[in-house]
Each structure stands twice: as C-alpha cells, then as structure tokens.
Amino acid sequence: MEEASLLLKDESFSMDKLEKFRIKGAFNTLYYVPDFINNREEEQLLRNIYSAPKPKWTQLNNRRLQNWGGYPTTKGMIEEPIPEWLKQVMKRIDDLNIFGGKQSNHVLVNEYLPGQGIMIRQETKMTRTKLASILLFPRSLLVVKDEFYQKYLHGIEEQKEDEVNPNLLNWDSLPEEIKSRTITRGTRVSVTIRHVPHTRRINISSLCRR
C-alpha cells in the first residue's frame, strides 16, 4: 500500500508537478508539499471531521481516530460507505496517480492533542533505530510510497515541543523564521488516504433472507 496525508487545492496538480517536492535521499519515494491546501479548505475539512457522528470516533490511549471505508485485516477489507466530503478529497488524491492506477478506498482521520503521538515500541528483540525525522506543518501534503512505505515504520514522538534543526529531512522547505527554534505543538488532525488491496462487498439484503 501507499498513503497520502491531506488533499489538493489545485485539481490540475499532477504527479509531474509533485516531482519537485521529492525529498532527496529518502529512497526517492517521499514527498513533502507545504501549503497544499488553503485556510478555507482546511476549515471546511475540519468542520466535516468534527461534524461526524460521535460513535465514529475511537478513543485510544494516545489519540482518537475515525475509520472510513472498512477495517483492513490480513485477509482483506470488507468495504463500508464513505461520505461524499471524503470522496471528493480521495478523488483529488487519485488524480495524482499515486497508487499506480488504483483508486483509494480507505481513510484514517487521527486527532493528536499536544503530547500525544504514535510511539514505535520494541515488540521483538530486534533493535529499532530512528533513521530520520520530518516536520509536518498544517495544510501540508505528505506522500509516502513504495520502499519507504513498505519496509520502514513511522511514529510521532509523544511530546509537546519540537526542535527545528538541520537534521530534518524537509529542512530546506521550512520557513526561515522557525529554523533553529523550538516550536510548541497544537492539536493536530491528519487525514491519511490509502489503497487497501483485497477488498470485498457484502450484500446486506442477501444476509437477511430466510
């Protein structure tokens, strides 16, 4: 699978245009686009997210999330309905051809309060080393593809502040006024759009026959 976070503000934006946002040295499969959507689009997206029915939220220890499109498992995913406001976002991502001609079919919406994140915990005796970090700004697009997505784990450190230093992969694209400073986190909402293979639909009416 590949994934993309957030949406496009320009429907003519293509994979060719995306090339100039490729992060060098990141296996050629990581792209970071700052200011990918504008303030109005961000407000509309957040309004739809927070207008979703309360049962749609799942509360975890370190964040809460919404799952749209179904629940992926090792055996595949049974498709579930996706609201129109998300389908519009998914179509604009599909227009980039990030998924190799396949259509996106799954969306995760994660909300992180300051100090929350996703820690990569040691589940085996294998030592896990942090290779690189990237600073994600509001309204930005992050595209993760191919080897970088398939072979490496990602996490979000559970802290309330971030140091902006030259070790960040996207250092060159960051605003000069924040470089070499410590910035305080606010609430973060991410929209992760993916293509999940091996999906199937269930005919509800057929399950109700006697």
Score class of each variant (00 low, 15 high):
residue 79 E to F: 00
residue 54 K to G: 07
residue 64 R to V: 02
residue 65 L to T: 03
residue 89 V to T: 09
residue 64 R to A: 02
residue 68 W to P: 01
residue 60 L to A: 08
residue 78 I to L: 11
residue 79 E to N: 14
residue 81 P to E: 13
residue 88 Q to V: 13
residue 95 D to E: 02
residue 80 E to A: 00
residue 95 D to F: 01
residue 61 N to I: 02
residue 77 M to G: 05
residue 98 I to K: 03
residue 73 T to D: 04
residue 77 M to V: 08
residue 72 P to D: 13
residue 56 K to I: 00
residue 76 G to E: 03
residue 57 W to R: 13
residue 56 K to M: 08
residue 72 P to Q: 15
residue 75 K to S: 06
residue 70 G to Q: 07
residue 75 K to N: 07
residue 69 G to H: 10
residue 90 M to D: 05
residue 65 L to E: 08
residue 68 W to D: 02
residue 89 V to G: 01
residue 59 Q to V: 15
residue 62 N to I: 01
residue 65 L to C: 03
residue 83 P to W: 06
residue 90 M to I: 09
residue 98 I to D: 15
residue 54 K to C: 12
residue 65 L to H: 01
residue 58 T to N: 07
residue 82 I to F: 01
residue 77 M to H: 10
residue 71 Y to D: 15
residue 71 Y to V: 15
residue 73 T to G: 09
residue 98 I to W: 00
residue 72 P to T: 14
residue 89 V to D: 11
residue 54 K to V: 09
residue 75 K to F: 01
residue 98 I to N: 10
residue 84 E to Q: 15
residue 68 W to R: 05
residue 82 I to Q: 04
residue 87 K to Q: 14
residue 58 T to E: 13
residue 67 N to Q: 13
residue 74 T to I: 00
residue 93 I to R: 11
residue 83 P to I: 06
residue 84 E to K: 11
residue 73 T to M: 02
residue 77 M to N: 03
residue 90 M to V: 11
residue 72 P to M: 12
residue 87 K to F: 03
residue 69 G to L: 08
residue 95 D to S: 11
residue 67 N to I: 15
residue 73 T to H: 02
residue 97 N to Y: 00
residue 92 R to T: 14
residue 65 L to M: 07
residue 93 I to P: 02
residue 78 I to S: 13
residue 67 N to L: 09
residue 63 R to K: 10
residue 77 M to K: 09
residue 60 L to W: 05
residue 79 E to G: 02
residue 70 G to V: 04
residue 95 D to W: 03
residue 56 K to E: 07
residue 75 K to L: 08
residue 74 T to F: 03
residue 97 N to K: 09
residue 84 E to I: 14
residue 96 L to F: 00
residue 54 K to M: 10
residue 77 M to F: 03
residue 64 R to G: 02
residue 65 L to A: 03
residue 87 K to D: 12
residue 63 R to P: 01
residue 61 N to H: 08
residue 56 K to N: 15
residue 62 N to T: 12
residue 83 P to N: 13
residue 88 Q to W: 07
residue 86 L to T: 14
residue 85 W to Q: 06
residue 75 K to Y: 08
residue 69 G to K: 14
residue 97 N to T: 07
residue 85 W to A: 10
residue 64 R to C: 06
residue 63 R to V: 04
residue 71 Y to C: 08
residue 80 E to V: 00
residue 76 G to Q: 09
residue 75 K to D: 11
residue 71 Y to G: 04
residue 82 I to M: 07
residue 94 D to G: 00
residue 76 G to R: 13
residue 86 L to W: 04
residue 87 K to T: 14
residue 81 P to N: 05
residue 91 K to H: 06
residue 76 G to N: 05
residue 97 N to I: 12
residue 75 K to H: 10
residue 87 K to S: 10
residue 68 W to I: 01
residue 55 P to V: 12
residue 91 K to I: 11
residue 67 N to G: 07
residue 93 I to V: 14
residue 62 N to Q: 11
residue 86 L to I: 12
residue 55 P to D: 12
residue 58 T to W: 00
residue 67 N to K: 12
residue 63 R to Q: 09
residue 93 I to G: 04
residue 78 I to H: 09
residue 81 P to S: 15
residue 66 Q to E: 12
residue 71 Y to F: 09
residue 89 V to I: 02
residue 68 W to Y: 13
residue 66 Q to S: 08
residue 58 T to M: 08
residue 56 K to W: 11
residue 76 G to V: 05
residue 57 W to N: 06
residue 63 R to N: 03
residue 53 P to G: 13
residue 90 M to C: 05
residue 53 P to S: 15
residue 59 Q to Y: 13
residue 65 L to I: 10
residue 65 L to N: 04
residue 67 N to A: 07
residue 54 K to H: 08
